[in-house]
Design a protein around this nucleic acid. Structure first.
Length: 483
DNA sequence: ATTAGGG
DNA sequence: CCCTAAT
């Protein structure tokens, strides 16, 4: 229970601990529903909506993946793939070998239209319906905690610089066994721990003033809103778009090492809090340093540097000791489905003495920010399909490229393909050592460069059907003379 | 809706 | 990948 001293993490000022309770339910499918309650009387939460079922069942399956949650982010834009223009050019393509990443040669593609129409209408419907509930619903019983601050990463969670400054949570996870319809992953967050907060005040400081100082420090963190981080095996999962399934969170084994962190967003914090001069603006004559755990390289830099660059993130579980300790403690797996009462993420009940309460900057403008799409590295076969298509169509007709080679890949938009080509060209130019990710066969990269140079030259008359033969790109680049 | 580029 | 300006 929340009163358990051991869970109050006495090491830190119990600012974020209290009698409030938090219950978090994360679901595995499209719309995670998480609810927070700040009161003992837990409220019911995480009711799932039928949408999820529908989307899962109706999703047309050209996806080989067993159980891939419908691309919720992909639905962000309703992609209209079918256009009259396309059908005008389509016949022209018929002569090509339609090598698509998903199916090799596609003999014919009649019938595609009807199929697609159906799919699209379905998707559209789903989209509309989902849109209403897409945002994670985080209910607060008293409005103390904004839903956004919990469910959304402020700035596309990638650059979570201040991450290390976060609080950690003990988690108890439980997963329903099978993943039929009830395959939800349940978490119980026992407690959140406050980030290391170093406060330096004069000896003459009064207790009341100290409280105020602490409050301001906390406020400065909360002001920017909080975002939640997820740790698996002590490693931070930075990709917000991965599914629990992909991340392995749904795996029972991993629930053991699952952790949450609260991270200040540090949208705009008092610059003076850096390290040196006591901020004259502070109402109290103290300086507050927010630092990471002692011994950590990035000291005193939370406020000043946090926004610029993410600290060299732990790669292989080399987590700062403090953090390690945080995430590894108190984690048990529930064997029954009972959601026990959880410990609180308490907002300091600033019932402070008559003092200027800084009106917390609650403008969570990211309320409407949409989740970033999940990262889907192009597979070699996809690259090949792309190269093939570009060789035939050129570099200025991404929509056609899309439809030629990626029509069935809903998650690849023509913009994506264009971007991928861009990176491919770049990749092909750099040395193999500098390349990352799944290595692309040099042969393909050569074709990329060849096609690239070819189509660059033919920009002017690019629309002219480039005579019968495919490109004559046999010798543009001389193998690996790229450095 | 697409293209083309910068971020 | 995202965001935008320009088509």
């Amino acid at each position: 229970m929340s009163k358990n001293p051991t869970e109050l993490h006495a090491k830190y000022p119990a600012m974020l601990n209290g009698d409030n309770n938090v219950k978090l339910s994360l679901f595995r499918d499209p719309i995670p529903n998480a609810s927070f309650s700040r009161h003992r009387n837990d409220i019911e939460l995480g009711s799932r909506d039928d949408d999820e079922n529908i989307s899962r069942c109706n999703k047309p399956s050209n996806e080989v993946k067993v159980f891939r949650p419908s691309p919720r982010i992909g639905d962000r834009r309703i992609r209209k793939l079918l256009t009259s223009k396309y059908w005008k050019v389509a016949p022209k393509l018929r002569d090509f070998e339609h090598y698509r990443y998903d199916g090799g040669i596609k003999p014919i593609y009649h019938k595609r239209k009807t199929l697609y129409s159906r799919e699209r209408s379905q998707r559209d419907t789903l989209y509309k319906r989902r849109k209403l509930v897409d945002r994670s619903s985080v209910v607060t019983s008293d409005g103390g905690f904004s839903g956004e601050s919990v469910s959304n990463s402020p700035d596309n969670g990638d650059k979570s610089g201040p991450a290390e400054n976060g609080v950690s949570a003990s988690v108890i996870g439980h997963q329903a066994s099978s993943h039929s319809k009830e395959s939800h992953v349940k978490f119980r967050i026992k407690s959140f721990r406050v980030p290391e907060l170093f406060i330096e005040v004069p000896e003459t400081e009064t207790v009341g003033s100290l409280k105020r100082t602490v409050m301001e420090a906390v406020n400065s963190i909360l002001r920017g809103g909080l975002s939640v981080g997820v740790l698996v095996h002590g490693k931070k999962v930075r990709d917000d778009n991965r599914t629990l399934l992909q991340t392995g969170i749904s795996c029972k084994d991993n629930l053991d090492s699952l952790g949450f962190t609260l991270e200040p967003s540090l949208v705009q914090t008092p610059p003076s809090l850096g390290s040196g001069d006591p901020p004259p603006s502070l109402s109290c004559e103290t300086s507050v340093l927010l630092t990471r755990s002692p011994g950590t390289p990035v000291l005193d830099s939370v406020m000043s540097d946090a926004l610029s660059e993410p600290p060299p993130l732990t790669h292989s579980g080399s987590l700062p000791e403090s953090n390690h300790e945080l995430v590894s403690s108190h984690i048990d797996i529930l064997t029954n489905k009972t959601m026990l009462e959880s410990q609180a993420l308490a907002i300091p009940e600033m019932s402070m003495e008559p003092l200027s309460v800084v009106p917390v900057n609650q403008k969570t403008k990211r309320s409407e920010l949409v989740q970033r799409r999940t990262r889907r590295p192009f597979s070699v076969s996809e690259v090949e399909a792309l190269v093939q298509a570009v060789e035939e169509l050129g570099t200025g007709r991404w929509r056609d490229v899309k439809l030629l080679a990626f029509e069935n890949a809903d998650h690849r938009t023509y913009v994506d393909l264009k971007d991928k080509w861009k990176t491919l060209v770049h990749t092909a130019k750099i040395s193999p050592q500098q390349r990352r990710g799944e290595p692309v066969p040099q042969e393909l990269l050569d074709r990329v460069l060849a096609a690239h140079s070819y189509w660059c030259q033919h920009q002017a008359k690019q629309h002219g059907k480039h005579q019968g033969g495919i490109l004559k790109i046999t010798e543009a680049p001389t193998d690996k003379t790229w450095s």
